[in-house]
């Protein structure tokens, strides 16, 4: 039953922010009951009685007016100060925090840990250690929100923002996007796994850590690049084995060195410089791949040439 009213407290910031919340709940309840009670009391005590009449008074009281101007004013400043102190806590990550990068895009969270370990939507963190998350967005505004830690911050395209927290309890917690970001906004989230430090270390190492080449290879297959660039004779696209660094002859007769820039261009604007002997069949991927994807694919194509060279 309690879980329907009290959210889980799983970070140091939660233990600092919750007292203020519950204090204000009690304070608000007293204010509302006080005013409500006063209204009901007056409405009953001073109800109209037939045949009787309480003559109207010229009502005015400087003392009362000052009371209910000054007290809420002072109360407001106190609440401001408490809130600002808490925010100061939230805004300044301690030295030596574990750094994790997050990129938001419609509609997923892409996470990269310090050693290159990546994950999507979920987040693995160690318990008892400050974690600083640096965030940016690839498209629209998002907001990284972990209710059990009481932290959230907008994820803004074109700039870095950050949050930090120190988890205090192992377990699994919700992770949400809190800034409306389009169709799948409510599905843009996952689970935060708070682990013992040794489990986290093991997870970092033992998990399927994906290097950029491996991500590129995955994309190469998933996006169907492999269908045409199969390497078989008579395939619709050129064989990419060893292409990196080589000199390619174009349909126009010109020659070009297949460097990173040429590879990138051939993915984003493939019709510009087509290899001799092939038709300009390949669609542009400029609106379908992120910059990260392109980097991964280029890394993968480069690795193909390395393998070739080793053989």
């Amino acid at each position: 039953m309690l879980k329907y009213i009290f959210p889980e407290q799983a970070s140091t910031f939660a233990t600092r922010v919750d007292p203020m919340y519950y204090f204000l709940v009690i304070f608000s309840a007293l204010v509302c009951v006080g005013i409500g009670g006063l209204i009901i009391y007056f409405a009953v005590r001073y109800r109209k009685i037939e045949g009787e009449n309480r003559p109207s008074k010229a009502l005015h009281s400087i003392a009362l007016e000052l009371t209910w101007t000054v007290i809420p004013g002072i109360g407001g400043i106190a609440i401001f100060a408490w809130g600002a102190l808490l925010y100061n806590d939230f805004a300044n990550a301690p030295e030596g925090a574990l750094e994790i990068d997050v990129v938001g895009k419609q509609w997923m969270w892409k996470v990269q840990h310090a050693n290159g370990m990546r994950e999507v939507n979920d987040l693995h963190v160690p318990v008892g250690r400050p974690v600083k998350i640096t965030m940016t967005s690839q498209d629209v505004l998002h907001d990284y929100y972990i209710p059990a830690f009481r932290v959230k911050h907008d994820v803004v395209p074109g700039k870095f923002t950050s949050i930090w927290f120190e988890a205090t309890k192992t377990g699994e917690y919700h992770l949400f996007c809190a800034e409306y970001c389009g169709t799948e906004h409510s599905l843009m989230g996952g689970t935060v796994y708070v682990m013992e430090p040794e489990d986290y270390a093991q997870w970092l190492e033992g998990g399927p850590k994906t290097s950029p080449q491996e991500s590129g290879q995955f994309l190469f297959e998933q996006r169907g690049c492999v269908t045409c660039h199969s390497g078989a004779s008579g395939a619709r696209g050129p064989n990419l084995m060893g292409v990196y660094g080589s000199t390619v002859t174009l349909g126009s007769g010109d020659e070009v060195v297949a460097d990173e820039e040429y590879l990138r261009e051939s993915i984003m604007q493939p019709a510009l410089r087509v290899v001799d002997g092939f038709s300009p069949l390949m669609p542009s991927f400029s609106n379908q791949l992120t910059e990260e994807d392109v980097m991964d694919l280029v890394a993968y194509i480069k690795s193909l040439s390395a393998e070739e060279g080793a053989e």
């Binding site: 919340y21 204000l24 401001f80 809130g83 009481r150 959230k152």
Partner: peptide, 19 residues
């Protein structure tokens, strides 16, 4: 009005914002 105080307090707005 009083619940507005919760949201106007910066630190407390962090968990409550956009909920």
């Amino acid at each position: 009005g009083v619940t507005g105080l919760f949201l106007a307090a910066m630190g407390l707005d962090v968990p409550l914002h956009d909920t």
